[in-house]
Amino acid sequence: MTGPSLLATGPVIPNFGEPPGGKNGCIAQNGTFCWDWVSLHWSDILQPRLVEHIQLTAIAVGIGFVIAFAAALVAHRQRWFEPSFSVLAAFLYTIPSLALFQLLVPFTGLGVLTIEIGLIGYTLLILFRNTLEGLRGVPEDVLEAARGMGLTRCQTLTRIELPLALPAITAGLRIAVVTTISLATVGAYITPLGLGQPIFYGLQTNFTTEFVATGALAVLLAIAADLIIVLAQRLLTPWAHSRRLAT
């Protein structure tokens, strides 16, 4: 077993001869943050894991969005659908991701499938909730005006309801993306993919720079993703003021 027990056993630095920076350099001394290590392993550790991380996130949010969107459309018309979904949501949110991934392993194995299923599960709830909220938030008088002008149900959906729900949907996407980036690091506990992998490896080997630098990279990725989505939101829904309650 991995985890905390190994941390107590002291630094396990792979012995590839003299580390970059010399015997008394940052890497040899297990410094908190060594640029040498970052530049040395950018192309063989950090960059590939970063790309994997983005892929994991994109797939989870993409598939999650398709499912959640369809489910929200159904729930918008069929009232009974929502409570069942909400119960599932409430249940899933109380399980720590660290445990959820482990619980999936007996069913879906140690591969990427386990991570993606877990991640999709979490995005579904956020995206479903926000899309439905957006659709329901369309004022009754607007809908009545649309009906009065002779729009069909389908036209009302595509021309009135969806555009007006867009701010809520993009807000949901934003939460889904940053949440997924966060949970994907935890997913590496099961399958060595994404930025979580060097973090867990660094924790096991007690090589500080590896988990600190990768952690920093994950932080930067999350902030960058958040900013990009905010910019996209501004461009997509210029009429919606960005000030929104943070809960």
Partner: peptide, 17 residues
């Protein structure tokens, strides 16, 4: 909002360092 976007495990890892 920026702080809320931070991945929990990454913050814990950096804090550990």
């Amino acid at each position: 909002n920026i702080l809320r976007a931070l991945p929990s495990l990454a913050v814990i890892a950096i804090g550990l360092g």
